[in-house]
Computed example of a mutant assay.
Amino acid sequence: MAKANERSPDAMTADPDSRESRFMRSALSILAETGRTDFTVLEVVERSKTSLRSFYQHFTTKDELLLALIDTIMAESTKQWRKETDGLPATEAMKLLIDRICTPAETTKQDSINRGLTYYNDHLAETLPKEYSRVLSPLHQLIGEILERGKGEGTFRPDLQSETTAALIMQAVLGAMRLRSLGAELNGIPIDGAHIYDFCVRGLLP
């Protein structure tokens, strides 16, 4: 899951005072406190000091609200990652991108947000697959561009199918984030960005 930072509530939309933005900030606040996504629409409405009628004018379900929240976080994060990796050799860009995605949370609130949204991804993939794919498309595109850069440099295999490989890398990275603590239980070593990069890059090199 993309890192949700402390500034995310202030960048929910171009108009931070809009009702839609207030609902997303309220959901983010609840996530920061509980790390759970089983809150109700009524809790969001009460936190935002609005009304159920107003909520349903913007979102049909809680899933749509959380999808919009993840969409904003993912778009903002990918925009920043693109700036950081632009112009780097492909292997360096891929390593930096994976490190950024896997960076541990800096605060307990941030950790709660990341944990809650990460485990909600599977639910959204089942209930809103087309919309969820659109949310992930900026990250998928960025990985694909880095792969194409590596093929042009001669660093990565020329026969790579960039779009398919980008999807596999993206899912491997996002899925492996859940193994950070489990890895320590299985073999005594927490799984981090370096492990994930080493695993992914082996299939890219000639």
Rank of each mutant, 00 (worst) to 15 (best):
E131T: 06
S48N: 05
Y120H: 03
Y56A: 05
G35D: 02
R149E: 01
F55T: 00
S162N: 13
R202C: 07
A32D: 13
Q57A: 15
E43C: 06
D86S: 09
L128G: 01
E148K: 13
F59N: 01
P9R: 09
Q80W: 10
K62E: 04
S162T: 15
L168T: 06
T13K: 10
L186I: 14
E43I: 02
Y120C: 02
L205R: 10
V41H: 04
E33M: 04
D17S: 15
E20W: 10
S18V: 03
L66C: 03
E43V: 08
F39M: 05
D86R: 15
S77C: 05
L96Y: 08
F199R: 06
E106I: 05
T37L: 02
I113K: 04
T13V: 11
R157C: 04
T85F: 04
S181A: 12
R202L: 11
K62G: 01
R149A: 09
L174S: 04
E43D: 05
T103G: 01
R149Y: 05
L66M: 09
S8E: 08
R202D: 13
M177C: 07
D122R: 11
D192G: 14
M12R: 07
A27S: 09
D192A: 07
R134L: 14
T40L: 11
L139R: 01
D198P: 08
I70G: 03
A194M: 15
A27W: 04
A176N: 10
S48H: 03
I196M: 05
S77A: 12
T107Q: 05
T40C: 07
M12W: 06
R19K: 12
S162Y: 09
Q110H: 02
E46L: 06
T165K: 08
M177R: 07
A105G: 06
D99G: 09
H195N: 09
G35N: 00
E106V: 08
C102P: 00
K49A: 09
P158F: 06
G175K: 11
V44G: 01
T60Q: 15
D10N: 15
D63I: 01
N5F: 11
G116S: 05
T85N: 10
E76S: 12
Y119G: 02
I146K: 01
D10K: 15
R47K: 13
E106D: 08
D63M: 06
A166R: 00
P9M: 12
C200I: 12
N114A: 08
Q171M: 13
P138G: 13
T108A: 15
E106W: 07
P16V: 11
P104E: 11
K3S: 11
G152D: 07
R100P: 00
I189Q: 14
R25L: 12
A125H: 03
K95A: 10
G188D: 12
L204G: 08
P9T: 13
S51D: 07
H195T: 09
L67E: 03
N121M: 11
H58L: 10
R47Y: 04
P190S: 12
